[in-house]
């Protein structure tokens, strides 16, 4: 019975997402794409933060890796976005492997600081390699050419067409992350978060598992970056800045780091809230910060965790009162 409702719920959400692409106005479609891309970024990221218990401040570097990988291919080699995305994601994956190799030896604050340092190193590399990356102007003029698969070619130039491509990648990400979390591998990651000593005594290499989680999350950041570059038709150095690394952290915290859907809900709240506030005041940063503070401090376990708790409490309350009678 419960499974049936989950099924209906997912079908409804999918129908909603598809109808946004079909019927919504251009701005809503654009904003939804930003939510989806941020969700991909945060879903991958939360595998590291929520699941493995590692706080990274450098994931924007991998996002930028995806964006610049795609941008460079698109400008110099071929405009086929599929190849660009593969190269972008591959670049992010390799970067995550190299940076992760040095970082996962440490935990907690040392890990956070190391990732921050590596992230900012990538940022200054992008900023200073002007001939390759265009410096602070970034890479401009990335075109959304049709995706050619050899036998068919799918146009994504129009915002509404590209939306379905982003949606497809989003669903793919959700599915993959879901599978990873449920796999024995995912359970080991949880084990590391709860008690890494015990995992070590179980005969597993904590370091390798951490590195794997790091690389997987970095790869999804790269996918988000490549999709983002195609969406905005440019890659900019600030996408590698630590302030951008903070976004998936915030989003995960808003939604709830211990939940699977938390990062997605967090992304919706993060982008919509800012959009709404900006319509009322130019002093948006103050209000945005205040509301985020209330959500993060007030709802323990984030929006998803908080709502789930509310339901549980209600249910147990009903059960209790029923028992008393």
């Amino acid at each position: 019975m419960k499974r049936f409702w989950t099924y209906v719920f997912i079908a409804l959400i999918l129908a909603g997402l598809v109808s946004i692409g079909l019927f919504a106005g251009r701005f809503v479609v654009y904003l939804s794409m930003r939510v989806l891309i941020l969700s991909i970024f945060a879903l991958g990221y939360n595998l590291l933060l929520g699941r493995t218990g590692l706080l990274s401040f450098g994931h924007a570097a991998f996002y930028a890796g995806g964006a610049y990988g795609l941008g460079l291919i698109s400008i110099h080699v071929t405009t086929n976005p599929l190849l660009g995305i593969i190269v972008g994601v591959g670049l992010a994956c390799i970067m995550a492997l190299v940076i992760g190799f040095f970082c996962v030896r440490h935990t907690e604050i040392y890990f956070a600081m190391l990732t921050l340092a590596f992230g900012m190193m990538v940022f200054s590399l992008i900023w200073n390699l002007r001939e390759v990356t265009g410096g602070d102007d970034g890479l401009v003029g990335i075109v959304r050419a049709p995706i050619s698969l050899g036998f068919a070619s799918i146009p994504i130039t129009k915002t509404s067409h590209y939306y379905f491509f982003v949606l497809f990648c989003f669903i793919l990400t959700v599915a993959l992350i879901y599978l990873i979390r449920r796999s024995p591998f995912g359970l080991v990651l949880s084990g590391i978060r709860e008690n890494d000593r015990r995992i070590e005594f179980a005969g597993l290499s904590v370091r390798n598992y951490r590195l794997a989680a790091f690389v997987i999350s970095g790869t999804f950041a790269g996918l988000a970056g490549a999709l983002g570059a195609l969406l905005e038709s440019n890659a900019n150095p600030f996408s590698a800045h630590w302030s951008h690394s903070a976004e998936p952290i915030l989003v995960s915290l808003i939604g709830g780091i211990q939940t699977f859907t938390g990062p997605v809900v967090g992304s919706v709240v993060f982008i919509l809230l800012r959009e709404i506030i900006e319509r009322f005041t130019q002093n948006w940063m103050l209000w945005f910060g205040l509301i985020l503070l209330i959500i993060i401090m007030g709802l323990r376990g984030g929006v998803v965790g908080g709502v789930a708790q509310l339901f549980r409490r209600k249910r147990s309350h009903v059960a209790k009162s029923g028992g008393n009678r």
């Binding site: 499974r3 997402l17 129009k158 949606l167």
Partner: peptide, 26 residues
């Protein structure tokens, strides 16, 4: 033990459905 959530197969079905809708949609 009650099985919670959805299985891999459910997920595959759902993603194929959406991918189909996405391809048809535009």
């Amino acid at each position: 033990m009650e099985k919670k959530g959805i299985t891999r197969r459910d997920f595959m079905k759902a993603s194929v459905l959406t991918a189909g809708a996405a391809a048809l949609g535009p």
